[in-house]
Each structure stands twice: as structure tokens, then as C-alpha cells.
């Protein structure tokens, strides 16, 4: 499952980032394997999305979020 499939309020654990060009940027911003993530807001037109990490809030385009593999909790 990837990040674009996450529903509002649903929590998940980040497993890995499949896009090599993006992974460094995402890791530096705190979006890295093992972190818990939750979908918070969606921009007009449904893209980009804003996700909550344990310490920060980050927005990301759907096209980039598709490379973030996650495992839902519960």
C-alpha cells in the first residue's frame, strides 16, 4: 500500500521510499522508514496532501506520495 491510499485519520508506518531521487529529501525532512504517519488535510482539487509525522506536518504531491510504501496500523 502507498501513501496516496491512506484515509483521513488512519495511521500507518512508513516502510520504504521506492523513488531514489526523492528518498534523500524525504528522509531529511523526517519522513523515513519506521515513522508513524497520518493523513491530515487535502488541498483543493485533492492534490497535494498534508501528512502528520510525530514531530512535524509536511505536504507532498500525490505523484511523489505514490513512492512512499506504508503499512497501516490496526
Amino acid at each position: 500500500m502507498n501513501l496516496t491510499e491512506l484515509k483521513f485519520g488512519q495511521k500507518a508506518i512508513i516502510e520504504r521510499v521506492t523513488d531514489d531521487d526523492l528518498s534523500l529529501k524525504l528522509f531529511e525532512m523526517g519522513l523515513l522508514p519506521g515513522e508513524t504517519i497520518m493523513l491530515e488535510n487535502v488541498a483543493p482539487f485533492g492534490d497535494p496532501i498534508a501528512v502528520l509525522l510525530s514531530e512535524s506536518k509536511i505536504c507532498i504531491r500525490l505523484q511523489d506520495a505514490a513512492s512512499v510504501q506504508i503499512k497501516p496500523i490496526d
Binding site: L22, L26, A50, C59, D64
Partner: peptide, 11 residues
Amino acid sequence: QKNYFIMELPS
């Protein structure tokens, strides 16, 4: 370059 948009939303 590849273009992406990843930005922090500060509190």
C-alpha cells in the same frame, strides 16, 4: 531536473 513539491507546514 525532476520536479517535486515537498514542503513543511509549520505550526
